[in-house]
Design a binder for these strands. Structure first.
Length: 465
DNA sequence: AATGATAACAACCGCCTAAGA
DNA sequence: TTCTTAGGCGGTTGTTATCAT
């Protein structure tokens, strides 16, 4: 570290040949240092800010001789030297809050930091990014269902969903659904069941684009979690109560009522009733943002965009005992977890007191065929049976669940829009172990994402055959 | 003990916006 | 009105620590 005859401050860092990196954009004497800050640099910066206060960062270099650009000074001060910074790991409360805030705001780190006194946006961002990576590897949802539901409800309470709000709860760079080619249909019932409608989306397993692109291919069942780190403070895997966890994934259609259904034996588990292409719908904008990963997005992509790649579940290595071919569709990799989900769902429903204490846990009766009623009543007007997303149950399955041959192989076989392939409806007979009883259910496997949640359930706990 | 993988952290880069000249 | 600049923000990259094999 070279020194000059000037003040220590100015000498230390100018023309520092030992600097890890030097910004030579400022040619000549003003050679700005890059790389890690030294304690001396910190001292200079602290002294300057103490004297002159924050701001005017570029002046620091001039006045103190600190060979750092103003940006770098500001960053260093903000992220490390501020006296009100809270050091150390995030507390469980903070972690929970971060997840909650991210569900509301997305990648608005600065705004999130404002809600966390003593924490910096960079800190939160780093925490979140590493968490995302962890979740990607584990194939787990990013948001615990309770948080997703809660945040959405809060969001919806404060916004008129008929218009795109500029409220902070919404991302300014909202990406509309226009490229999704959903039929422009007004869902009368959606407003009535606003919360559940959209919340159904939130309890989908989230995943961002990168997860879609890569994370699912890198599921690492044996990935360790350091120390006390759990993916969701509020949903600690230590609590391995499968019912409680399963409840978080299973919910009923908000449109449940008693009427007939064209798929008497079919139930959509985790149907995406909340996703529709109507920009005036209550779908929060963040649900469409890549930065706010959601499996709903994935599913929406499956359904809406022919070019959207389907996840290859070939690489998902989760030890689920596969059912025999004669009982299930071939290569159905979802059966194991879906089995588990259905099992838990059934457990809940057969219980007299299947109370759902948690507001986010919405019950579904897997034997209840009325879940399709809405689809029928609302969509038969279009002459076809399809979901609010322009897809029939069967087409949803076909597009969202890679079975047998990959959809990549036969893109033309993927029905889009209003096409319906009733004959393609997949009924999966499943048998469950349930307190000595055997119950057979048929279902439409529509949730490949459920497979990803198997880590939460503990794959060894469930099996089907 | 060595090695590789991963997490955690720190810092930089590029873009955007607001304010002032 | 346009241009410049400072500051802020989010994304990305690099480094170090930690853990498992």
């Amino acid at each position: 570290m070279s020194m000059t005859s000037e003040s220590n401050e100015s000498l230390i860092f100018k023309n520092d040949v030992d600097s890890p990196s030097v910004d030579d954009t400022n040619s000549g004497e003003n050679v700005l240092k890059k790389g890690p800050w030294t304690s001396d640099e910190d001292a200079i910066l602290v002294e300057h800010v103490t004297k002159h206060g924050e701001g005017n960062w570029n002046a620091i270099q001039k006045h103190s001789g600190l060979a750092r650009c103003g940006k770098s000074c500001r960053l260093r001060w903000t992220n490390h030297l501020r006296p009100d910074l809270k050091k150390g790991a995030f507390s469980p409360e903070e972690e929970h809050l971060i997840v909650e805030l991210h569900a509301k705001m997305g990648n608005k780190w600065a705004r999130m930091a404002a809600e966390l006194p003593g924490r910096t946006d960079n800190e939160i961002k780093n925490y979140w990014n590493t968490r995302i990576k962890r979740l990607q590897r584990a194939g787990l949802p990013i948001y615990p269902p309770d948080i997703g539901l809660q945040s959405l409800k809060e969001t919806q309470q404060t916004d008129d969903m008929t218009t795109f709000s500029s409220n902070d709860a919404y991302h300014p760079d909202f990406i509309p659904f226009t490229n999704f080619e959903f039929p422009s249909v007004e869902f009368k019932n959606l407003k009535v069941n606003h919360d559940l409608h959209a919340s159904s989306a939130l309890i989908d397993i989230p995943s961002d684009s990168s997860l879609l692109a890569q994370g699912l291919h890198s599921v690492h069942p044996s990935k360790r979690l350091r120390g006390s780190e759990y993916l969701f403070p509020a949903l600690n895997p230590v609590n391995d109560d499968p019912v409680q966890i399963a409840q978080s994934f299973v919910y009923s259609s908000p449109y449940d009522h008693n009427s007939t259904c064209d798929h008497p034996s079919s139930v959509i588990v985790g149907s995406h009733s909340g996703l529709n292409g109507n920009p005036s719908s209550s779908e929060p904008d963040w649900a469409m943002k890549m930065e706010l990963p959601s499996l709903q997005i994935q599913m929406g992509s499956y359904w809406a965009s022919p070019s959207s790649p389907l996840i290859s579940y070939e690489s998902v290595d989760i030890p689920i005992r596969a059912p025999p071919i004669e009982n299930t569709i071939s290569n159905n990799r979802n059966s194991g977890l879906l089995d588990a989900v259905l099992y838990e769902s059934q457990t809940m429903n057969t219980s007299k007191n299947s109370s759902i204490s948690n507001a986010s846990n919405v019950e579904v009766d897997i034997r209840d065929t009325s879940s399709h009623d809405f689809f029928k009543t609302e969509w038969e007007a279009y002459g076809e049976h399809m979901s609010p997303f322009g897809h029939s149950c069967s087409s949803i399955f076909n597009e969202g669940t890679p079975i047998s041959r990959s959809s990549f192989d036969e893109p033309e076989s993927v029905e889009r829009g209003c096409k319906v392939k009733e004959e393609a409806t997949i009924l999966v007979p499943m048998r469950y172990e349930h307190k000595g009883d055997e119950t057979t259910n048929e279902m439409i496997v529509s949730r490949p994402d459920m497979l990803l949640a198997s880590d939460w359930f503990g794959p060894k706990r469930f099996h089907c055959w």
